[in-house]
Amino acid sequence: MTTITNNREEALIVKEQDVVPLRNRVKEYGVKIGMSILNQTKLITATSELVRNLLKYGGGGKVIIESVSNGRDNGVRVTFIDNGPGIADIALAMKDGYSTGKSLGLGLPGTKRLVNEFDIKSELGNGTTVTITKWKNG
């Protein structure tokens, strides 16, 4: 199924204070397509988790927010791009209970459960890109 992007914007995330405005922007995208409160909450919580990773492990980076459509449903897609050290073992990072930082260690797998699509690409030394999509009726 092809996905069409209807609207798109980018934000630079370099400090902790950028988190709340970003969450609000993502929420606005959800509101615009009529997403339910629950799905909005899941989406912005996932965004919050990932942007925190972006700051903590990637030293900041770029976030792309898109309003997407697959012909059947509308959704919001958020992409997190950092140029940090990258993740050595993605499979391990996706396991429940794993964490290298001082967080609770449910970052990635927990976040994955909140969204409909979750894609992670990482190369050691070349940063990490995480893309999440939440469909309106997903």
Binding site: L38, T45, G110, R113, L114
Partner: peptide, 14 residues
């Protein structure tokens, strides 16, 4: 706590 927040926390595993 809002219902949506409670459900999200549970899904997140917290």
């Amino acid at each position: 706590m809002q219902p949506a927040v409670a459900i999200t926390l549970v899904e997140l595993g917290l």
